[in-house]
């Protein structure tokens, strides 16, 4: 993932002599290469460096400082705003994405580290323009209110279902604990998992005895 760009001609053999790191940090952007322990290693930053990411099957390029997180790169540089910034500290799950099919918090991943990998956000979960079946199940079970936690939750739920095709309550409580919702949509999310695993949802389905759903065709966006 490090690009060797010798053209900058920067090479330091005796790195241990660098007692003051600040002095060793040239303010020019672009990766330079230094030699350490007989091997070359690229120095990125501290200024902006070129970063290429593959998001939902599309390639994006930007000049980013190494301190920019994947979440901020997606949202602010590539306008991929499905992942939300809520806690920015690996505590809430709103920024959840898949990197090479692994569920991670994009707020706590540096953009520069995510190069060369396949990043999938809620927008790309269905693989095209269509919603993923899990996302449709979120609509069907009204597992969303303000919707701010929802994109992250849909990605987490999809990944959970891939690994727990028969996920039950205890597994849901554990497996989806990394996502928090303030509006309180968890019951709907239990319904999503129930629907996707072909179970009846636990507990009473609300005011069921009295009012049935309107025609199914009334579902979806107006």
């Amino acid at each position: 993932m490090t690009t060797n760009n010798k053209s900058s001609g920067f090479s330091r053999r005796d790195f241990l002599k660098i007692s003051s790191i600040a002095a060793s940090v040239p303010l020019v952007a672009g990766p330079k290469v230094i030699e350490v322990a007989g091997q070359e290693v690229a120095v990125h930053g501290p200024g902006a460096v070129p970063v290429t990411l593959s998001v939902n099957g599309k390639r994006f390029n930007a000049e980013l400082e190494p301190r920019v997180t994947l979440l901020d790169a997606l949202r602010e540089h590539f306008d991929v705003t499905g992942p939300k910034r809520v806690c920015d500290r690996a505590e809430c799950g709103a920024c959840t994405v898949l990197i090479d099919d692994r569920l991670v918090y994009s707020c706590t991943t540096l953009a520069i580290e995510a190069q060369g990998k396949e990043i999938v956000t809620a927008e790309g979960l269905g693989g095209g323009d269509r919603p993923h079946a899990v996302q449709s199940a979120f609509v069907n079970n009204d597992a969303q209110q303000c919707g701010f936690c929802t994109p992250g939750f849909t990605v987490a739920a999809k990944s959970f279902l891939d690994r727990n095709p028969h996920g039950h309550d205890a597994e849901i409580a554990h497996g989806l604990a990394g996502n928090l919702c303030r509006c309180g949509t968890y019951r709907g999310i239990h319904g999503v998992v129930a629907q996707m695993t072909g179970r009846e949802p636990q507990g009473n389905a609300g005011t069921t005895m009295i009012a049935s759903r309107a025609t199914p065709s009334s579902k979806g966006d107006a």
Binding site: L125, S136, V139, G147, P151, A214, S218, G220, D221
Partner: peptide, 17 residues
């Protein structure tokens, strides 16, 4: 008075809202 599904549901769950 019936359950008709949230009209903005898909936009939210797919991250487009």
């Amino acid at each position: 008075g019936r359950r008709m599904g949230r009209v903005d549901g898909t936009a939210k769950s797919t991250g487009h809202a």
